[in-house]
Amino acid sequence: MTLAAATPLPSDRREKGHLAAASALLTPATAVVAVMLVAPLLLLLRMSFNRFDPTKLMVEAATAENYTRFFGDAYYTDVMITTVVVALSSTAFCLLFGFPIAYRLARWQSRWKNAVMLLMVLPLFVSSTVRSIGWMVLFSHGGVINLAATSLGLGTMTLMQTTTGVIIGIISINLPYMILTLQSVVEGIDENLEQAAESLGAAPARAFWRIVWPMALPGTMIAAVLCFILAMNAFATPVLIGGPRFHMMAPLLYWEFTANNNWPFASALALILMTTTLVMTVLANKLILGRQARA
């Protein structure tokens, strides 16, 4: 994602040598991605123009009806809006919680630092299914939060099967990615710059917003985009915490494929989800980084 800036090359011969070396190094990985990703996606694209028949299941066709069905039915657009809202708000909270944590970690000098960093990595490796179980204990009818709320006289409080619960579950999964990325971003910013700004009379907050923030912005965007993508594609968390009445795109397309065996529509849903994610991330990059470049 940070692959810009072409290095000027001295001569033609050298350029040819580079080309050979680059293709030798890149071919195996590119081949895997081409066969395992590009080809299946093209098939998905083709299937999305087929027609569904309840008996024969998939009929070869060239129709846009799967796409018009999506945009013509408020249910599907509602599910997409829910997905985007959940993804945006969980990403916003990840930024809000993640930045102070990452900043303190980055500027922290301690022999425990390495251990704490490892502790931040650990949650990444516990599957979302398992973490949802932890939340169930907290959120459910007989759960910790409800018990505490009733004993404090706050009435019943269950977060199971609520949008808030799903957002919390997703933040919990994505926040470590955010923290780890931002931590290395902040560490890459020379502390002396901040001190210099402040010694010139800038208030710490001002020094932060004028010096640290602009420098951290590109790296922050990468982290935010990653969190956003992961949330858009969330599967286990919405199912396990959200419950049957909470619908998001990834579980919906899985259901359309397995329960209804409607491959054409499931393919269309997959492509619409991918396109939405892609367009939103490109727009956000243009809008935020573009504005910064102009400033």
Partner: peptide, 18 residues
């Protein structure tokens, strides 16, 4: 490079099915 990083951005459930 963009292509090689693309698998990160696509819903796992969709790649699996595809």
């Amino acid at each position: 490079g963009t292509l090689l990083l693309a698998p990160l951005t696509i819903p796992g459930i969709a790649i699996g099915l595809a």
